[in-house]
Design a protein around this nucleic acid. Sequence first.
DNA 1: TTTTAATACTAAATCGGTTAACTGTAAATA
DNA 2: TATTTACAGTTAACCGATTTAGTATTAAAA
Lengths: 339, 339
Amino acid sequence: MKKKLSIVDIANELNVSKTTISFILNGRAQEKRISNELVERVMKYVAEVGYKPNSLAKSLRTGKSNTIGLMVEDISNPFFASIARLIEDRAYKNGYKIIYCSTDNDTSKTQDLIGMFRDRHVDGYIMAPPEGIEEDIESLIKDGMPVVLFDRHLPGVKTDFIEIDNLFSTYNATKHLIEQGFKNIAFVTFASHQTQMVDRVKGYEDAVKSDGLKSTVKEIVFNQDEEQIMVPLRDFFKENPNIDAILFGTNHIGTCGLKVMNELGKKAPTDIAVISFDDYDVFKLHSPPVTAIAQPVEAIADNVITVLLEKLNDRSSSAKPQSIVLKTDLRIRNSSLKK
Amino acid sequence: MKKKLSIVDIANELNVSKTTISFILNGRAQEKRISNELVERVMKYVAEVGYKPNSLAKSLRTGKSNTIGLMVEDISNPFFASIARLIEDRAYKNGYKIIYCSTDNDTSKTQDLIGMFRDRHVDGYIMAPPEGIEEDIESLIKDGMPVVLFDRHLPGVKTDFIEIDNLFSTYNATKHLIEQGFKNIAFVTFASHQTQMVDRVKGYEDAVKSDGLKSTVKEIVFNQDEEQIMVPLRDFFKENPNIDAILFGTNHIGTCGLKVMNELGKKAPTDIAVISFDDYDVFKLHSPPVTAIAQPVEAIADNVITVLLEKLNDRSSSAKPQSIVLKTDLRIRNSSLKK
DNA sequence: TTTTAATACTAAATCGGTTAACTGTAAATA
DNA sequence: TATTTACAGTTAACCGATTTAGTATTAAAA
């Protein structure tokens, strides 16, 4: 077990001060007028023995950790998992590591996690924030930490965020159902005051109202345990036997909804037409396949990391926060629905 | 932007040496005979101002970072995502953070990532190792790093691992198909020399041979791009028109397989019976639902973290490595297959 | 000839903790 | 009375880097 080399070992071996080594390794040789000769000698030796500076020591001194904290609702949800994956790739390419965690949409858990991230001196934060976290985020921002939100934003908080056009997405999907001739369209979603959910509900309501149809919104309490989501769904179907189409507010609730429909022997789309927010394999492979509102996952991840890197590279920048709103894609999978 | 308090600030404020503060905060007051009076005064002040020790400085001095490096094949794969989620929870509860990354089963990428983790002084490693990484893992172990492998292991490398009984799982699934009366059963999987894949193939082959049936194994090159997986699958179906049942080696390939079957208008299970490794929503919700080999995800995550925490708490322990092999569950979803 | 400037580095402080070794006093033991 | 022991802490070194301020030498400018 060879002990790791430190900058002092290198300095001693080459009879040079560690300051010089440090300057050379940080590309400040020119600026500090270190002779090319010496630079070469040092670089050669460093490569030879494979010396790597201790990043903890470096972080302690410089205050930068080259780490980004990523907080999503649940890393095992395919939507967040794929965004996390894309962010991870881009971050590594730019020399950043990711520390991630799942908030479960739980405010106090999230506060704890922010504390951990702070303590670990992450350089920047990417998060899909839960409700009630406004003050904590504001305090991060006040302390000069770059914060980029995605999937939703916090109305009072002035920071960058990337999201999609939720209102139009559900409006458009609902209109699509109406055009297909459905009259009793329900919207089933998680109970939430978050911006993305509020907008999704509003999009749906705007659409049904514009056609003089009745609005039926069912809100379900978020729960980790899938069974706890399915219970109220069963009730919903029993209480609303005349529903002919449903729009689900997230992939998770859409999946649970399909499971319950299976249980109850209700076929999509012959018995009840279904559209879900967030597209993924379950909907594509369902037979017949389920129409879904696909979020531009790559574009979201790209924008998130681009904006964050910008802030990281130009800390002082007081440019006003960017709000990027991306379009979704309604993937219509059953053109022959009802008519 | 109030600057963060350091231990020196606390010491000065209370007119005590920082050593004393450190002892008290690390629960060594008794041992170092610090008076209860002083302990209380310090604790009260620390709580009041919300002082939190700088973990970077702490790590630098102690060599421990309270971080675990988690390397999976692909964090956006539901199998790995759910294991990651469970490991995350357990790790946080025990005061550890997770740094994660996806290896893509790429050896040199993984080597890079190990380098990063090393550099960040992670306290332990959890990984689903790619091929060809034996030496790197051995060098980690030689340097005293706790390493726990899962999903597969490296035959020559003596370290703990958690996996499932792959051989029996595919043997059993194949037998099940045979019992249903299928005669032309194919096994479609990723090309790999990894232990889990080798065992899965062997389990299949043992089963078909034991009944004197023909073995048809199709190996597909792993690729990030789904289309690159579907091309050889299409070929496979065209070249083997008399196949009446397929066993897919992973959830990913199973999902792609179903997509291709959809394209080609082949129905599961009426045209071709299907069983896939790794159970998830896509298989549960497929109509009719697809039989799958479910891995005990919670048990895997539990065992992984338990073994790692044991090693972390007892570094010197030279107890010989544990090999834990868990059972899978064949979730039969179409009892009325053929007969 | 003296002053200034450029060259090529280095010493020491610093980041914020932990820890081995030590100090000074009072009471207990030899 | 002289020596231990217990008590209640403190001093200073250390982890491994970065960075500010400085030094010694030579060359150019005044």
